[in-house]
Structure formats: C-alpha cells, structure tokens
Nucleic acid binder design. Structure first.
Lengths: 358, 358
DNA sequence: TTGTATGCGTTATCAG
DNA sequence: CTGATAACGCATACAA
C-alpha cells in the first residue's frame, strides 16, 4: 500500500526520470528504480547489510534481518542481477541450446532442466540451433556475452570453433542426449548405437524376416540407423531404409512409410526414428487399410507418453527425458559449485517396452 | 591461431585464474577473461573507442575501426553484457512467459518471437507459468531482477500483484493470444469469444442439430466455450459439454469424447478446444468404430499444421501463431525504442477452414 | 554482527 | 572523431 502506482505505461514513450515524486517511502534515482542504498537508508543500515539479508540471511542478526526485510517490502525493492552478476562474477544464468523448441522431446527436457535450476536461483537462456552446427556456434558466442555460469548442449557434434570458444570460456558444459568417451566436460545421455542394435535384436527374436526403417537425417537418428542396419546385417537380414529430412513431422512419417511401400516393403516390422514419424506412419498404414500390427508392426523411438493410446505398435524405445533434464541440471550445479565431478559420463540408459494394452 | 587453448575443463574444479600465461597477445585479468581494456591496449586506443566500434561503428574513423576490429579478433574478445546492460540500462533481454513449453502452439510462437528479436540483438528469457497466475507472478518478479527491456505475456489474466509489479517497473509489456479493451500496455491476439460464436454459427449453418464441445479448463478455452454455447443457445440448440483439465494431451481428448458418448451423444458435431484434444477424440472414435466425419464431425482449434493428414474433421479454426510471435516482437521493439505506439490493440484474427482434402 | 573501501566491465556525458 | 571522468548497482575482502 505504501507504493503508489502512478506510473503509466500506456501511450507515452519511456521517460524514466520524468515521473513526479511518488509514494512516501520509495526514493528514486536517475534510473527510476529502487536500489540497495534506498533500502539501506530506510532500514538505517549499510547497503552491504541489505545484500547480506538477501544472500546470506544467516549472517545477519535476527532484529536487523526483520527490519531490513520490512524495508525491502516497503520499497518494493527488486534486486538488480546485472549489477550483482557483474560484481560477483556469477550471473546465475545457464545457457541451453536445443535443436528445436517445438520438438516436444527437447522441450520437455528443458522444462525439467529449467524447473530444477530455478529452485537453486538460476535461470535458463534458451537457444535454438535448428540442427545446425554453425547456427549453434553463433548462438553460443552470442549467449556467452551474458556470462552464463554453465551451458547445456544437445548432442556431441559441435563445430571446432564452438568447442574452442567453450573451452577458452572455461565454463561448465553438459552435453546431453548422447554418449561419448570424450565429452567437452560432462555428458548425460545414452548410446544411440546401442538403441539401434537392441531394436534390431529385439525384432530378430520376434522372428521378423522383413525389416525396414524410417529414419530422420539428424545425427543421433543416423547413428541409431547405423547400429540397427549393421546388427541386422550380421544376423543376415537386409534392411529396407527410408530417409526423411529434419525437422521431422507427422507428414514425413506418412511419406516415410509410403516410401517403403513403394520399395516393395509390404509386410514386416518397421523402426521409426521418432514418435512423431511413427504416428504419421501409423496413419498412413490406416489410410491404406494396412493392419497394424498384424501386417505391419511399428516400433517407435521417443518414449511416447501416450503410445498406449495411439499406437498399436509392437513396441517402443523408452528413455526418461525428464531425468536427462534433471541430471543435467544437477551435474551443472555441482560443477558450478566447484565440486570435483564424480563421473563425467552419465548413462541414463533406455529400454524397449513391448506394446502396451490399451 | 594466436589464442592458445590451454584451459582445460575436464576433471578439475573451476580455478579461473590458475592458468599459466598463454597466447602471445591475450592479456588476462583477475576474472580471466578479455576485457574492453585489453582490446583497447592492443589497438592503441581508449576503451570507449572499442565500445564505439561495437555499438556505433559509424562514429569511428575507418582506419581506427579496422585496427580495433583486428584487435577484437586477435584477443578473442567477448563483450560482457552484464556490464554493458548495467551501464546503459538496457539489458537487451526480453522476458517471455508462456503457460507451457511443451504446448507446441506457444512453443512455436516463442520460436518466431525469439528469432525476430535475435535479429535485433535481443535475447529471450523464457518462463513457464503452468497456467497458474501465482506462479506467473513469482516468475515475473524473479525475472524482473534481470532488468528485461520488455515482457511478453500470454493471455490477459494476471494477478493484481503481477499487474502492479509490471506497472511500477515501467517496462513495455505485450500481452498475447487474447484481446481486451484494457491491456496492460499493448496486446496482440484475437477474440476467443468470437471464435466460439463463429464455430457455433458455422456448425448451425451446416445443419447440425446435435452439437457437443470438449473443452479444456484454461481461461481462453473457457471463453471460447462460453461464446460457443451461448451462440447456439440463441439458435435454439443445447450443447453437450465435456470439460477436461489442463494441460491437455492426447489421452484427454479420448477421455473427452468418451465422456460425451457416455452422456448419450452419439452423432453430430463436436468442437474440440485444441488440436491435441481433437486428435485424441479422433482416435477414440476410430477405436470404437465411429465414422468420422459421417457419424461424428470434428472441429479442431489450433491451426494444426498437419490437419489435412491426420484429421478428417469437418473443419479447423485457423490462426497464425507465427504472426503473433513476430508482431509481438515488433511491437515490443517499437515500445523499447520509445516510439509512440500507433495502436495498442492488435487483432490478428482467425478463420474457419473447411476440411481439407488429403 | 556490521561497516568501509574498492572493483566488476561497460557506457553517458562532456571536453578536446 | 576521440578521450577523460564518472557513474551503473552490487558483492568481495578486510577491518572494526
């Protein structure tokens, strides 16, 4: 109640210092916003004490604490983290680069990543690479000017320049969604080659003789495909493949299946490299009157949250996208705190789940 | 080549200043990173000149410009926007709050919003409100400590405290996805009540006598539902309704339709309040052997990018999510530049598109 | 437990 | 066109 709300947004341009004097207690400076000094004066303490109340409440006497807190409320003080970050050299900002914001897999990972970091006072600066190394590189050098305390990366393929920038910035980096013996710093993910091989063996054991794959042209999908095809070749089975461009969508799933059909692939099992593609394929099969899974069995990759409801597929490759987000956050936090990392390669694993009953 | 890359991330904790002297040209200070001063010394100019090269290249002589730019490259200088923002009182940061990151409608809007702002040197700080006013409020006061130059909000329902914070912060705000005669500042969206009424009349004109709606419990969906139900009531038609919780997903679409069927709604037309729900409903109908659109016509809301491929619905409510993102960005940029706003209520409209042919 | 001095890296302002 | 000086708002290090 002590703060008047006489500033108006509508109509007028920004005129930071043109407002007339307002409420009884809030003093204004050239920038127009309340500072630590203002709070300090009102509370009758030094600015650093206010700072302590905010950052290390334990180091302040109970009485002072309360007095300062009241002053904070009365002035409506909002800390300035630009200043704080500059002074402390900790921005409490984390950069995160994902291939596509509208790909729900990455979006949901980031959602949990963000949430976890928020609990610790960190915020996430999100960037979209569009599956493009060069774009990722530019994005990172731009974002680095915000002096993030850590970086979240998707995948292990980054341009040489990008790696160098990150390395010289000397900042904690967590790569995700994949595995490599030589991460930039820390990595949280699982092996896509193993996914491919596992699905291959799984289908083989199910006695399928005719096997196809609809795969996106992104790096991790390609690795899965390689593992898949290679494993089946070893087992004496030739895989019919259909490659679709990235970013994938429902329509491309239809196209992918149509493609296989054109190649004479009419029955057997198909491994789709994403849930979205699998759903498109499912629709295409339906529209052509092909029974699933009797004539065509479909295996999806993507831990479809509603697989059981939409996709009478043979099975699904499961992984925990939320765990990747959380683990990545935790690892980064540890690195930021300067703790020596226990292990810098974290395999969160995956599993193949047989078709669920609806 | 002049920068050595002798800093190592792996294994050791952060020790910013422990690296031994490196490349021939890059000088280091306590923080370990190259500053404006370093570049200035190397170029033999004052720091402010380097700053000008970066921010107002036009105000610097061609020769100096080149010399400084070389120095920038050689030192590998990365500007510090924390410092820059503090000094200039322009953070070049925009806060954006959306209900859910994994809802593709909002995600894609943000994608275009972000992209547009990036072209102008701004970055977006994303927050997820989870359709919760209180959470939005907390998020905003947290984010405000980054001193964003502008704020992107979803919808028009914000807590009183939230409105006050925003107003006293005296910062450009753009509300989106809805319309109101009294926006906080500027608004870009369309009328959800009109959507409801339009779909109602559309179905009425198609001669449907039995009409239902599956609606999510979020604010804008509720407004659409009200308009829909009210308009049909005027026309003498009673609507069978099914309410599902938020956030919506595919499964809830199935549940929603099942719900209507339980209520004895077996044929006619149904308006689903989101594309995801509509797809779920479609699947539920299929699994029960109900023909779409012959027995049950489905109208979706959400401009489904692949409506034509998945949903033999009667029609779709279209709107341009990308335009909302872009317009919101443009409006914010104008406000930030201090230009008087031409119009602070921008209706981007919507349209009803009849079922497309596959 | 609290306060004082100093610096973080940049830009505004005003001179030259 | 370029430079000196003084903020910007806060936190670290040390002193009281």
């Amino acid at each position: 109640m002590s703060i008047s709300k006489n500033s108006h947004l509508k109509g007028n341009g920004r005129s930071p210092s043109s407002s007339t004097v307002d409420g009884p207690l809030s003093s204004r400076r050239s920038t127009g916003s309340v500072t630590l000094d203002d709070v300090a004066k009102l509370a009758g303490v030094s600015p650093i004490t206010v700072s302590r109340v905010l950052n290390h409440p334990g180091k302040v006497a109970a009485k002072t604490l309360e007095r300062v807190q009241q002053a904070i409320v009365r002035t409506g003080y909002v800390p300035n983290l630009l200043a704080g970050g500059l002074a402390s050299r900790r921005s409490r900002l984390i950069a995160a680069i994902i291939p596509s914001i509208s790909n729900s897999v990455y979006a949901e990972t980031i959602q949990f990543f963000t949430e976890r970091l928020l609990d610790f006072g960190y915020q996430v600066l999100l960037g979209e690479s569009g599956y493009d190394e060069l774009r990722e590189e530019k994005l990172i050098s731009t974002i680095l000017s915000r002096r993030p305390d850590g970086v979240f990366l998707t995948g292990i393929n980054h341009s040489a320049a990008c790696r160098k920038i990150l390395l010289t910035a000397d900042i904690p980096v967590v790569e995700t969604w994949d595995l490599t013996p030589t991460p930039l710093d820390v990595i949280v993910g699982f092996s896509h080659e193993q996914v491919g091989r596992s699905v291959a063996r799984f289908l083989y054991e199910k006695q399928y003789q005719r096997i196809g794959i609809v795969s996106a042209a992104d790096q991790r999908a390609t690795i899965r495909e390689k593992g898949f095809v290679d494993e089946l070749r070893k087992l004496g089975i030739d895989v019919t493949t259909s490659l679709v461009p990235v970013p994938t969508n429902f329509r491309l799933g239809r196209v992918g299946l149509a493609n296989l059909l054109d190649k004479g692939f009419h029955d057997g099992a198909i491994f789709f490299s994403s849930d979205t593609l699998a759903q498109g394929g499912l629709e295409e099969a339906r529209s052509r009157g092909i029974t699933v899974p009797e004539t065509l069995a479909i295996v999806g990759f993507g831990d479809q949250p509603y697989a059981a409801y939409t996709c009478p597929s043979l099975s699904t490759v499961r992984f925990d996208r939320t765990e990747i987000g959380r683990r990545a956050a935790d690892v980064l936090l540890e690195r930021i705190e300067g703790k020596p990392v226990q292990q810098n390669i974290i395999d969160v694993g995956f599993s193949i789940v047989e078709r669920e009953t609806t």
